[in-house]
């Protein structure tokens, strides 16, 4: 069962085209959605909320097709976005009461717990909140109604390290319930690496890879080769890029296995080192690779 699935999505803007072949999030998992500014993260999330309609393609969220059932499905989605604002002239308490009056499922004890762990003052007006406090308040309002699916558009952007860890801790706690799923977009690969089990990369409106995190970390490696004079490196399909000329060459691969090292050793190149890559390095290498292929 998938919490959300989108197929063959196309949306044309005057200076931008979004084209997503397939994106799925299994129920109970947490997916980090990584991309640069303007890559199409927010548009994708807004489509999954039914706020934007694709020109073509199908979207299904919590088992129901969108945008037809958007208002129904939204009862079970907690959506927050970095550029979402609450009413500056009202207190956080007013917002909590108002949301509680709408959602019968509102969990007051959980809300109180979040208030405390986020270190927020309910009686304070929103206009006095810092950016971090405002984001935490928005997250509180989304979490306390215990949605089945959380969609967070850059929840950690602009947060200081303490606020970030508070937010990430509460997101992890949400997943203790196996029925709940989270999709969150970020430019910060560290956050994604820390808490997500699924990863999707997006660049210039196209998905450049989506799978589970361990898979990524296993498959991507950097090999440092010493190439003796006269030895020509072959073009291997599993190699994404090779840098450096002359004796020292660095190879990046997205299909690492022991046999790759063996292949290089067999032609006389010397594998000095095999390094694992951080998610950030993988993301950058992946994007560059896809852009080269597209060009």
């Amino acid at each position: 069962m998938n919490a959300l699935a989108m197929q063959q999505i196309k949306k044309q803007y005057s200076h931008f085209q979004l084209s997503l072949e397939s994106l799925e999030l299994p129920t109970g998992s947490i997916m980090g959605f990584i991309g640069a500014n303007g890559a199409g993260k927010s548009t994708t999330l807004r489509m999954l909320m039914g706020l934007i309609q694709p020109d073509s393609g199908s979207i299904e969220v919590l088992g129901k097709p969108l945008p037809k059932h958007a208002d129904q499905v939204k009862w079970d989605i907690g959506y927050i976005s970095e550029d979402m604002r609450l009413y500056p002239q009202a207190t956080l308490e007013w917002h909590m009461n108002w949301i509680r009056s709408i959602y019968p499922v509102w969990d007051e004890n959980y809300a109180k717990h979040l208030l405390k762990s986020f270190d927020l003052q309910a009686k304070q007006k929103l206009k006095g909140f810092s950016h971090g406090q405002r984001v935490k308040a928005t997250i509180l309002l989304a979490l306390a109604r215990r949605p089945k699916l959380l969609m967070l558009d850059e929840p950690t952007t602009g947060l200081d390290p303490i606020a970030r860890s508070e937010v990430l801790t509460e997101l992890m706690a949400v997943l203790a319930d196996e029925e709940r799923s989270i999709l969150f977009s970020s430019q910060n690969t560290l956050d994604v690496e820390q808490i997500s089990d699924q990863i999707a990369f997006i660049d210039r409106g196209r998905l450049v890879g989506a799978s589970n995190k361990e898979d990524y970390l296993d498959r991507w490696r950097k090999l440092r080769l010493e190439v003796p004079v006269g030895v020509q490196l072959p073009q291997l399909p599993e190699v994404v890029s090779s840098n450096g000329e002359g004796r020292l060459v660095i190879i990046t691969t997205n299909q690492y296995s022991r046999t790759l090292e063996a292949k290089y050793n067999a032609i006389g190149a010397n594998v000095l080192h095999t390094d694992t890559m951080s998610l950030e390095e993988i993301f950058v290498a992946n994007v560059q690779h896809m852009r080269r292929n597209a060009a």
């Binding site: 706020l51 958007a70 208002d71 939204k74 009862w75 907690g78 976005s81 550029d83 979402m84 609450l86």
Partner: peptide, 17 residues
């Protein structure tokens, strides 16, 4: 312009409502 609309639209309402 104050972006509170995004908050409202995240609630289960349709454009018509």
């Amino acid at each position: 312009s104050t972006q509170t609309r995004l908050f409202i639209l995240s609630l289960p309402i349709s454009m018509r409502e």
